[in-house]
Design a binder for these strands. Structure first.
Lengths: 299, 299
DNA sequence: ACCTTCTATCTGGATTACAGATGGATTCCA
DNA sequence: TGGAATCCATCTGTAATCCAGATAGAAGGT
């Protein structure tokens, strides 16, 4: 009986993702690889981990029991890697950042300039994921450090610190009924609301909905295009609005009684830890938290 | 950074065995494989685990730190395997026993007869190791269940239960000065003592020495041949004496004040556990412990 | 009924794993 | 001091394994 790390990862990721195909997408592997890894694990163990009578695999009782063991083992392994990483006196060769699009880009520029000067040998990957969750990327090992919106259900494997919040403004098209302002908060419910979210995020984003009529869109830019055309209204941060090609056709009317913001936090893997360069960047990001007061948008 | 299970096993076994070559022998692998596994682990970690300036590798400070992590991880993995094994309702296909030669063979015959009837599909390996330590075999995974002498430094990874003791008799050749009997205990020190032990066991067997002049021999049978020829005397159990081709030329004089015996115990891997068949045999071996009184040797 | 998505199986190419041979160095013993 | 034994690192060749991608069948949703 010799289960491999990859088999255990395939098993655990299948449970978390809900299917072999979703697990494969998350891991960046072929679906057949995940399917085969789990099947081989079941052969080695001598019992089924999943019930496959329906289209989607469902954990068996034994599977639940082994899931607990596998999670524990993978956690222990991350711990070992974390210890090794801390003992490693070298600067890591690569750092992968995942930054939610709500985080203002202008804060990153100067910081990464300093980083480049200090760590010229580190290859940086800068992701602004939307189709993936930042927290899940860190958990899965495809990102080392990330800026994310505070999740409703935080992942236990992440170490997180709050770094501030970004205020959100009401945005609509010039011809939208809300464009002139002078309306009550209740009036917002009469018009369609657009919310940015990926397929897996709808449940966690339900708290953001105000209107009963909601469209979910997987792109900030596309959504603002729709807003420009009067499809509905949304709540968006200044820097995203400023960067949109639709900017000239967008208006941000005063919404009395509507103070909304996005709480952002920095996260990294608790056990895996960070290298020297990653630790430096984390400390800088924590030190330079978001400002409390925001300048008004330039016209 | 993706250390494999085999790399961690090679690392840990090298520490325990004292060298890459000894680890390779213990694992039944090529020396180059162990050497390469550890070297690759060091490349991944980014620091040396061993100091190789002398002929034998010596753990570095970082290596000691990683050893603790690796042992913990391997223990956790054994735990997972143990859980899987207990959930596995099938009878295991193979059971490997390692039995110290001090354990009387005649107690095994009937027991294994019952075992064969009850578990006809289980392939049994029966080892009577001398060049290997029973406890280490279980620890390393090359034996599932074992009968061993109580070690002076028990392995923490083993679950053990005492199963009795085997009395030892003084044995010498017919022409040896001690053959006639009628001597005091102090007289034993005047003659050479022969002790069975492998290379790694001398330190743990020091407690058995009575005479200052000791020969260490790696075979019960060879040792009794030497005793027959008057090279020295030894302490041995009845059943080993009875089975020796040298038996007719050996005598067992009464040694007043010399009560010696070997404490035997049953052991298995704490985390890895045992299957259904192995569990059955363990329970039978525990239930049928060694008798307290021994019949005299037949002439 | 049709489309989308999922799973299990199969194929082929690439990569990896490992045993064994070898040379150089260290250590021990006579 | 010299020879033998043992150890380690490197190299080679063979075999086995790994994985992506294609495919067919089934489940589920609209």
């Amino acid at each position: 009986m010799n289960p491999t790390h990859e088999q255990l990862v395939a098993f655990v990721t299948t449970v978390e993702a809900g299917s072999f195909s979703a697990a494969a997408r998350r891991l960046g592997k072929a679906q057949s690889l995940v399917s085969t890894h789990v099947a081989n694990l079941e052969l080695e163990f001598g019992f089924a981990l999943f019930d496959r009578s329906k289209r989607l695999p469902v954990l068996t009782a034994n599977g639940r029991r082994m899931l607990a063991e596998a999670l524990s083992l993978l956690e222990q392994r991350e711990h070992l890697l974390g210890v090794a990483r801390r003992l490693d006196q070298r600067i890591e060769p690569r750092l992968r950042l995942a930054i939610d699009e709500f985080y203002p880009e202008r804060l990153i520029g100067g910081l990464m300039d300093d980083f480049a000067a200090r760590f010229p040998t580190v290859e940086v990957e800068l992701h602004f994921p939307l189709l993936d969750d930042v927290g899940r990327m860190i958990d899965a090992g495809s990102a080392d450090l990330g800026v994310m919106c505070r999740p409703s259900e935080p992942l236990a494997t992440l170490e997180t610190r709050p770094i501030g919040r970004v205020p959100l403004r009401l945005v609509c098209g010039r011809d939208h009924p809300l464009a002139a302002g002078g309306f009550e908060r209740e009036d917002l419910k009469r018009y369609r609301q657009l919310i940015v979210a990926t397929r897996g995020q709808r449940s966690s984003r339900q708290a953001e909905r105000i209107a009963p009529d909601v469209w979910w869109v997987e792109s900030h830019f596309v959504m603002l295009e729709l807003v420009k055309h009067g499809v509905g209204w949304t709540l968006m941060s200044d820097h995203v609005i400023a960067a949109s090609p639709a900017r000239p056709e967008l208006v941000t009317p005063i919404a009395p009684g509507l103070e909304r913001w996005v709480e952002l936090e920095l996260g990294w893997h608790r056990q895996r830890g960070l290298g020297i360069a990653g630790g430096w960047l984390r400390d800088r990001l924590l030190a330079e938290a978001l400002p409390d007061r925001w300048p008004p948008l330039e016209r």
